[in-house]
Design a protein around this nucleic acid. Sequence first.
DNA 1: GCCCAATGTTGGTGCGACCAACATTAGTGG
DNA 2: CCACTAATGTTGGTCGCACCAACATTGGGC
Lengths: 146, 146
Amino acid sequence: MEEVPERLAAKPSWLITQLAVHARRLVFDGFTAAGARGYHYRILAALDEFGAASQAELGRRCRMDRSDVVAAVGGLVDQGFVDKAPDPDHGRRNKVTLTRAGAQQLQRLDRALDRAQDDLLQPLSAEDREVLTRLLTRVLARHEPK
Amino acid sequence: MEEVPERLAAKPSWLITQLAVHARRLVFDGFTAAGARGYHYRILAALDEFGAASQAELGRRCRMDRSDVVAAVGGLVDQGFVDKAPDPDHGRRNKVTLTRAGAQQLQRLDRALDRAQDDLLQPLSAEDREVLTRLLTRVLARHEPK
DNA sequence: GCCCAATGTTGGTGCGACCAACATTAGTGG
DNA sequence: CCACTAATGTTGGTCGCACCAACATTGGGC
């Protein structure tokens, strides 16, 4: 494979965005085999950890735009992984709930995601993975204000 | 800001892809101010470091699809940053050359890119940045076969 | 000389991220 | 209590980056 220009290869932004391409491909392949996409997993995970929520709250937790939440929740409803009903206590708000089938789907996706992590970080030792995770967490926190 | 589900926040693939979002925004903003996009910078950098090249070679070096190289080179030609002419030694092949104006544009983009790196890695010390870069380089190398 | 690989090009696809606008409802400050 | 603002759901877009298939054309290997 031809070499990447040095001024590119040396830039953290290049390393991160290029590695993100591979990470997405690995995760995407695993999710596709289970009939899901990234947005679906995020929503299922948020519902599982924090319980039923409005679409707006899901959007904030999953770092998704409201309009994209609409589409993703719609898909999950069609698949029976999620229920969506008007919130009785709150006029306009919807209440999105994880179904039993949704919880099972989440488990499948979790396994696929774990495999993807292993593939992604293959060359690193457990300690190196720890170091990398901590550094990335610190940097990301800086860019997710408040 | 609402908290991200833990099973997401703990995954390296999440950290990398989310950080890539911020990295791209920072770089994009800098490039946009100079009238360029990511693909343009890659090509200018490759031409500067390795000299005139065919579009296919640019694609391999810049990790771009051939078809995307066509569009990006076309844009650079329109801006006068690059010359494109049939390779006399090689029938079908094109020879893409960096112009003087293109070299200046590359310098502008380099400065913008350097500022973006600083913004991106703000919370990290110089040593931590070094560690992060080395780890990312190792992982990325694994996923760029041969 | 023939076949295969490489090249340039056109015209698509998809995901993830994002934005504007609108209607509707919930709070909040006078 | 009422007016105004904030929040919510929804529709219907845009954009960058990555990628694919197909085709015509040309070069090099056998």
